[in-house]
Amino acid sequence: MKIEISKEDFNKSLHRLGDEYRIYAPVAMAYKGTFSDTDSIRYKEINTLDEIEFNLKSHFSPKEVILPITQVLFYFTEDQYKEPETEKKKLLVFLRACDIHAVKRMDQIYLENGQRDPYYQEVRDTVKFVLIGCEKSYRNCFCVSMGTNKTEDYSLGIKPVGDQVLLDIKDEELNAYFFGEEKDFEMNYVTSNDIKVLIPEPHQIAKDIAEAPLWREYDERCVACGKCNFVCSTCTCFRMQDIFYKDNENNGERRRVWASCQVDGYTDMAGGHSFRKRHGDRMRYKVLHKVYDYNKRFGYHMCVGCGRCDDACPQYISFSTCVNKLHDLGKEER
């Protein structure tokens, strides 16, 4: 059902939803940016519409709401262990079309790639998505190239217009919260981006692509900070950490923490071996995973074209430029 509701009434509904849901949305957090006196736009629990940053792309993706950066899997002591209590409230997350497509990628990895991950499943079962339409394409976005510019996969679509809010309620449950006049409207979505990405067909990726000189420029340019992975809405890697408490080392906890294929240590193995020491090799691994390997396994590309990796790179390395170079290389070799 599509309705129009005043901001005030919307906030009242949000307040009522707050009894059952933790509500997360992108928020411009003042002074929290990388540089002094700059904002960090990232996901935060909110209570009212005005807290939400609708006009800018968030620096970090909503994945951190569903997949915590640090998650304790269990506490242990000698021969016993206990999983942490889980949050009783459900989740309502405001996000854009590309990010909803990214959730499908997370589901693929955590739920449909062998054994289901119970920690992820538990959170995922409680999440409802609120689509923020995109009035315009942002810098570095290439969602149209990736086919992620549009989605129907949401519980609620939201379009704030002045003091009014237009809502596209798709989830029956939410009908009980929002009351307004019926009004037809279309959710915004972008139909074209400044950046266009051409992805090589699998057969255009040469067997010896790892040897291509293309990667070598990244040996020097990339500083292996991992920002591209941490802001990515589709990266799902984690590492395990066993902590033994200082006061009593018979007690401790096992955590899982986000990992980055660009950061030192990612490929460390028993015996001190590690692979992909050159940063360009790590870049190759990441790029090919996003637009080749994943596709080969699951039939669609991993990357959703949000462009956050390009937004974040301190060295101005552009993922989309690299994919286009890869495409050109494929053409040459044919």
């Binding site: 003042a30 960090s40 970090f60 950066i69 900070c225």
Partner: peptide
């Protein structure tokens, strides 16, 4: 502020 500048996840931030 080098910690803030170089933190890839915004774990380090500045005080207001």
């Amino acid at each position: 502020g080098e910690c803030v500048l170089n933190c890839p996840t915004n774990a380090w931030t500045r005080n207001e």
